[in-house]
């Protein structure tokens, strides 16, 4: 379906679409006020689950990806029970530790082929698949946003104690989003493995997390459109700036993040920032009445 796109552009599109899935898997946690950094870990779990099942056990690729989703959700829910008792910076640290344990574990056991990773994974994932999956995810995100579920998530993000006083089951919402986030990250990992044919633990280190957090914070957590646009924007920047792929890349990511956090602490699509922009561009009424 997307064969008319030149190979390189198609590659860029694929990479961006997988990044979008990862960013959304992080976003839904933040929309519930969960500062979780476990995404990279779940992505690694998903990638390895599917890669191993398909290469070693000869499972068909779609089944491998489904298994990855299942394992990701199960792990997220079982880790969520202890980890979600933490709040704020403690949750961030706890979930980061979890992600690191997963990735370091993968690098140090035999059946995953350690730090060398796995190569020769069957690649069946096409741009068409990715477009369809991302479309479904974004549609669901929009449905959530427009429903009372989205309102409840926002309430939890803004003030969880008050939200509870209004009958919102904060813990259930957080468990559900943690599970869904884990499942989505795992799916992204599996899709990536079946796109590139290789997987290794270093793909899922702290660096990936920094990139995803940058996309999300620059875009803003209020609506999915912000992080999606930020992901696309950063990809375009990355392709057109000469220092992409060099050490300067991290520098410009960091600078953009700092500047955005100063100008628009809630992201570029936040209501606060757009209203401020509107005020600046609107002609100020004459104050001398």
């Amino acid at each position: 379906m997307f064969e008319w796109i030149p190979a390189y552009q198609r590659f860029l599109l694929d990479v961006t679409l997988i990044d979008i899935i990862l960013v959304i898997s992080l976003l839904i946690l933040f929309q519930c006020g969960l500062f979780s950094m476990a995404t990279a870990g779940f992505a690694a779990i998903g990638g390895y689950t599917s890669a191993l099942l398909v290469t070693d056990a000869d499972w068909p690729v779609p089944l491998g990806i489904l298994a990855a989703v299942f394992v990701g959700a199960t792990l997220a829910v079982s880790f969520g029970l202890p980890v979600l008792r933490l709040r704020g910076i403690y949750l961030a640290l706890g979930s980061l530790a979890l992600a690191q344990v997963i990735v370091i574990g993968i690098a140090n056991v035999g059946f995953t082929n350690g730090v060398f990773g796995i190569s020769g994974i069957p690649t069946e994932v096409t741009t068409g698949w990715l477009v369809a999956i991302v479309a479904v995810i974004l549609l669901v995100m929009e449905l959530i946003h427009r429903s009372h579920f989205g309102r409840a998530m926002k309430a939890i993000r803004l003030d969880e104690h008050t939200a509870a006083g209004l009958g919102i089951n904060v813990f259930a919402y957080r468990m559900a989003t943690f599970g869904i986030g884990g499942a989505m990250a795992a799916m992204a990992g599996a899709l990536e493995a079946h796109r590139t044919a290789v997987i290794s633990p270093d793909q899922y280190d702290f660096g990936l997390l920094v990139v995803l957090l940058t996309y999300m914070f620059v875009g803003g957590v209020e609506h999915w459109l912000g992080p999606v646009l930020a992901t696309i924007g950063f990809r375009i920047l990355n392709e057109n700036l000469e220092f992409a792929g060099t050490d300067w890349e991290n520098f410009y990511y960091g600078s953009i993040l700092v500047v955005v956090m100063l100008l628009a602490p809630d992201g570029l699509t936040s209501r606060r920032f757009t209203q401020r922009l509107a005020r600046i561009f609107r002609r100020r009424p004459d104050l001398a009445t």
């Binding site: 669901v140 449905l143 009372h148 926002k154 209004l166």
Partner: peptide, 26 residues
């Protein structure tokens, strides 16, 4: 006073109606 900040009056009160919604996501 614990309100949901940077939200409108309507949003705040509508959040209080959470239990009134029965419909699922679908």
């Amino acid at each position: 006073v614990c309100l949901f900040e940077q939200s409108t009056v309507l949003d705040n009160v509508l959040t209080g109606r959470h239990l009134g919604f029965q419909g699922g996501l679908w």
